[in-house]
């Protein structure tokens, strides 16, 4: 099944590189159009109804997110392309959307395309929700995203950050504990969650523990001590993290 794509990037050479990479190595991908602005991009999408768009985040007039805002119920999936690892990228990761850091290798492109191939058989609703959560997160960004997309075995799970009590490392997976005492194991490393949540008053108290400081009940003295969470669980704190933990916790 052919994959119809639209490429939107303000720099023509970036469009050209992607076109030639796709043409040379992905026979099932058809580039319907390459555009240099959000406006041209919207027109191309409406004209071609692509299954996937490659969307540059940073563009001079409107950024890539503006294009997405114009669609309530998008029928396409997005792979962001960006040259910068900034807040936008963090928001993208937060929503478990795909992205390519320019310059990207053929291998990286192949991974992105393969991901889409897997996803496109899933229902559109999940994809739409995913985009909406992303847009919401981007809008809220100064205060931080409200929801985070958790990639589970069955797809994405969108949860409010404030519902997460803590995260526990389980090898390359992470077990997330929620306020309602349920939990979920997610195929993302705790380090990634730390990266995503550290700005939202989460704190890595231990090699295998990341806690939401808003759910901290009390602290019990010890070598490192223990953090008593509001759900009644206790989390060990590393000796080396104690000082910073107490500082962060008291600042709240």
């Amino acid at each position: 099944m052919q994959i119809k794509v639209v490429i939107i990037d303000d720099e023509q050479h970036c469009v050209d590189i992607l076109v030639s990479m796709l043409a040379r190595h992905f026979p099932d991908v058809e580039v319907a159009e390459g555009c240099n602005s959000v406006m041209a991009g919207k027109k191309a999408i409406d004209r071609h109804h692509p299954g996937l768009i490659f969307l540059d985040v940073e563009m001079p007039h409107d950024n890539g997110f503006e294009l997405l805002r114009q669609y309530d119920r998008p029928e396409f999936d997005v792979v962001f392309t960006t040259a910068f690892e900034n807040y936008a990228l963090k928001a993208i990761k937060f929503s478990a959307l795909d992205y390519l850091l320019k310059p990207f290798s053929l291998e990286e492109l192949a991974v992105a395309v393969e991901k889409y191939r897997q996803k496109r058989f899933q229902d559109h609703a999940s994809m739409q929700e995913n985009l909406q959560v992303f847009l919401q997160n981007v809008k809220n960004f100064p205060q931080g995203p409200r929801k985070i997309a958790l990639p589970t075995l069955n797809g994405l799970l969108f949860v409010a950050v404030s519902d997460i009590v803590r995260c526990e490392s389980q090898a390359n997976y992470t077990k997330i504990f929620f306020q309602d005492k349920t939990s979920k194991t997610v195929s993302r490393s705790l380090k990634e969650f730390e990266f995503l949540l550290e700005d939202l008053d989460f704190f890595r108290v231990h090699h295998s523990h990341l806690i939401n400081l808003h759910h901290l009940h009390s602290y019990i003295q010890g070598e490192g001590g223990f953090a008593m969470m509001k759900d009644g669980t206790s989390v060990e704190i590393s000796r080396r993290r104690k000082a910073e933990f107490l500082k962060k916790a008291s600042q709240l």
């Binding site: 690892e85 850091l101 310059p103 990207f104 290798s105 053929l106 291998e107 990286e108």
Partner: peptide
Amino acid sequence: EEASEYLTKFSRLMRIILE
């Protein structure tokens, strides 16, 4: 292709090193 592969790897390395 080799230039591209080399460049993208170099780019990733540069990102890490800069960070």
